[in-house]
Simulated assay, not measured.
Amino acid sequence: MTVTPLAAHASDRPAPAFRGRIGRDARSGHYAVPGRYRLHLSTACPDGLRIAVTHALLGLDTVCPATFLPAVPDCPEGGHSVLRPLYEASAHRYAGPAVGPVLSDGWSGRIVSTHAPDIMRDLARRFGGDRLSLYPCGAESEIEAVERMCGEGVEEAAQRAGSAGGEPVVCDIALGTLLETLGALDRWLDGRTYMIRDEITAADVELWVALVQLDTVHRNHLDAAAVQRIADHPALWAYARRLTAHPAFGGHLDLDGIERRHHARCQGLEAAGAAVQILDWAAHAGDGKGAGPQVDRP
């Protein structure tokens, strides 16, 4: 399975303000110490959801505690007021939005990273120990390919396909890219339980979050015929149902928060596809019922 090259497209994801890493030992500055670091994230945000699922799969509640932020930021520029002190302590006269996700260092009171892929890898490699291997040896290139496919071929293509006021030909090309990507994923997953290995890896976290976004956010701006074609990938959506039943996935699925965050940010018009739900996510979320975690205010 290959990643289809896509035309350049400006993502609405802000560039990470901080990209520190957690190293192996004290020489790296930031090194793995249980209780030293804290996550600040909203599971209504796709990056926050990816990190929350990773954190739960690795069982890091006490090793690296998490503070869950409200679904809708409370600052006009799209940031969270509770994160402002961390940002200001980490960068002199910081003027940008104080957005999540954030990995903070309790020893210094500063931010280590706001870059979700780095945070996920550092949680798995520095704190995962002998727990589930989310980044198994030799699988990095496969995981990176899935990340690109999910980001460009699913999320960005779906966003362009449903773009308000977009040129019809551009929207049609984007929809074609989306359907081509979903078709490749569907064929790949036929007869498989997980994406690249016989157990859950980071590739599964990436794909599951992309499918959640596709059905709960991007579907709202597509016509009903397009959504029906998206839904016509049985192996792919059966895979999404299986993962949703896992507590680490479904237990963090804040459907109400995703909807409120989307309506707070989105300026586009709702299309007919909004009425064609692909999955009943809450029904498959086990005991979590799609309620998501409670907001933990520091």
Score class of each variant (00 low, 15 high):
residue 17 A to G: 08
residue 48 G to E: 12
residue 103 L to N: 11
residue 60 L to N: 14
residue 147 E to C: 07
residue 121 R to I: 13
residue 133 S to A: 15
residue 75 C to P: 00
residue 200 I to V: 07
residue 287 D to C: 03
residue 268 G to P: 00
residue 93 R to G: 14
residue 142 E to Q: 09
residue 252 H to M: 14
residue 86 L to C: 05
residue 277 Q to C: 07
residue 20 G to E: 06
residue 99 V to E: 03
residue 29 G to R: 13
residue 24 R to T: 03
residue 271 A to Y: 14
residue 169 V to A: 13
residue 219 R to L: 08
residue 82 V to Y: 01
residue 30 H to A: 12
residue 145 A to I: 00
residue 115 H to M: 03
residue 182 L to K: 04
residue 279 L to R: 15
residue 111 I to G: 05
residue 276 V to C: 13
residue 192 R to K: 11
residue 36 R to Y: 02
residue 205 V to Y: 02
residue 3 V to I: 06
residue 103 L to C: 06
residue 160 R to F: 01
residue 266 C to Q: 01
residue 296 D to C: 05
residue 146 V to M: 06
residue 123 L to A: 11
residue 251 G to T: 07
residue 233 H to I: 00
residue 246 H to I: 11
residue 109 G to K: 12
residue 106 G to V: 06
residue 289 K to A: 15
residue 77 E to W: 00
residue 107 W to Q: 10
residue 151 G to Y: 05
residue 128 G to M: 13
residue 221 H to M: 08
residue 81 S to V: 01
residue 21 R to M: 00
residue 141 S to L: 02
residue 106 G to N: 09
residue 202 A to D: 07
residue 104 S to R: 02
residue 254 D to Y: 05
residue 66 A to I: 10
residue 60 L to R: 12
residue 244 T to Q: 10
residue 89 A to F: 02
residue 196 I to G: 15
residue 100 G to S: 05
residue 213 Q to L: 14
residue 170 V to P: 03
residue 19 R to T: 00
residue 269 L to F: 12
residue 109 G to V: 10
residue 157 A to T: 14
residue 225 A to H: 03
residue 168 P to Q: 03
residue 218 H to V: 01
residue 70 P to L: 09
